[in-house]
Amino acid sequence: MTIDRNAPPLLRVEDLARVFDVSKPWLARMIEREPRRFVKAVDGVSFSIAKGETFALVGESGSGKSTIARMVVGLIRPTRGRILFDNVDIADPGRTADVARLRRRFQMIFQDPFASLNPRFRVDAIIAEPLTAFGLMSDRAEIEARVADLLKLVRLDPADGRKYPHEFSGGQRQRIAIARALAANPEFIVCDEPTSALDVSVQAQVLNLMRDLQDEFGLTYLLITHNLAVVRHMADDVGVLYLGRLAEVAPTEELFARPRHPYTRMLLDAVPDLRPGGRPRRAITGEIPNPIDPPPGCTFHPRCPLADDRCRREAPGYTRDGGARVACHAVEEGRTETAPPAAFALA
């Protein structure tokens, strides 16, 4: 599928931020003389997705990727920033009427298909919920026919509609969740770790299905994942998140061929290679710091082999480099050597 890169994006996220209040209750704070505490879960994230494309957000736990997903579908309100869907700011509380109308056009697939389907509902009732909730259909026969079509679409038997979720395996449940997401004919689907709860052979089925549906309906995906190999197979563009900020945004090919940000490089190095005698994986030094108390300057500097005084002091802005946008002083100053980063190699 060819993509018109000059077409206006379907989703544009501008300077998105979310701060969570993680203070103790008022009384406990007064007694222990503690200040209020906040976590910047997402801090100034911007990206855009063209129609029909897949944009992947990768990051480890605490990177804020799920918070972004939930803000985009309206489950959490942003503290700051704009989320433009088809040029309408869906984060603007003044436009709830428009947002309600737009809501049918975006949907979400959740990580755990054991939790995202109500165990007490029959599968046909689960899939039909968006149809009735958006007031798209009310005739029973019509709904039944649509549910049967949707089940066939996700390669399940229409007769499966009469069963309950517990009668299905994880992969089949995720396909039911996909059928529900597709029910109202959305254009845009947020996929929050859609396969990380699934076994590999089933993961392949679900990823392939998502690709087929994208080709068939011209769907646009925001893919949230921690798995770089999944990104490689699914995404057109990638954003790498670290502690609520985008470290690097680049077209997938470019990111994997020439990762620029030291964190991206470390992530890629940490993925094991299956081929015997293949590139040994390098261990990253250190762990993600506590987001309540992030390091000053560039938040990655304690783990970065290229960090210098400026990195410890000053948070980097974005540098354009080819098709990529990178937040790194070293990249900006051209201090990146081509040698592998100074992390210790695995034996």
């Binding site: 395996s169 994880g170 992969g171 089949q172 590999v200 052979s201 089933v202 993961q203 392949a204 089925q205 990823l207 392939n208 690709r211 798995n227 770089l228 190999a229 999944v230 490689r232 197979h233 699914m234 995404a235 057109d236 997938t252 994997f256 890629l268 993925v271 290679d273 299956l274």
Partner: peptide
Amino acid sequence: LMGSIPSLDGGRDRLEQIPGS
């Protein structure tokens, strides 16, 4: 099983899959 594991070297293509579960 081996075929269905996505790798970093592959392109943006379909994965092998085992039917059923």
